[in-house]
Amino acid sequence: MGSADEAEAEQTARELLNSEPNIDAIFALSAVATLGAFRALRDEQNSKVLLVGCDQQYDLLYYLSLGKIDSIVAENTYEMGELGMKIVIAKKRGENPSQVIKVKPVLITLENMSAPEFVPILIHDWRPMP
C-alpha cells in the first residue's frame, strides 16, 4: 500500500485486516502510508501482523525503537540529490548520462539502527564521513 494520505492509508489497512485475517505482514511504501498502517494495527490491537515501512521519518524511528514497527527501508537521500545534480551537470556539459541510476536502500531494524554506518542516514547527518 502506498497512499499519500494518512487517513486513506489507515482505512485501506483496516479494510485489508478485516478482509484478509490471515496476512502476515503489511509493506507500506511511504512514511505517510506507514503511519496510517501503524494506526490501523494499533487500533485493531493486532500485534501478529508485521509492518515494514519506508522512509526514515523521526516518528517512524521512534516506533521502530519501541518494536512497534518491524523494519524500515531507508534511503540515502543526500546521495540521491547529489547524483541527480551530477546528471544535470553532465547534461549541461553535453554528455549523455545514464537515465536510470539505482541507489541502494538499507533495511533498518531494531538491531542495526544504532550501527554507525546507518545512523547518519537516519538522522540526516550529511557531513562527510570521517
Partner: peptide, 16 residues
C-alpha cells in the same frame, strides 16, 4: 551538528 539518534528518539517520545 545534528542531534544524535538518542536525542531524536527522546524528542519523538516527548512529542508523540
Amino acid at each position: 551538528v545534528p542531534l544524535t539518534l538518542q536525542q531524536v528518539l527522546d524528542g519523538c517520545k516527548r512529542a508523540l
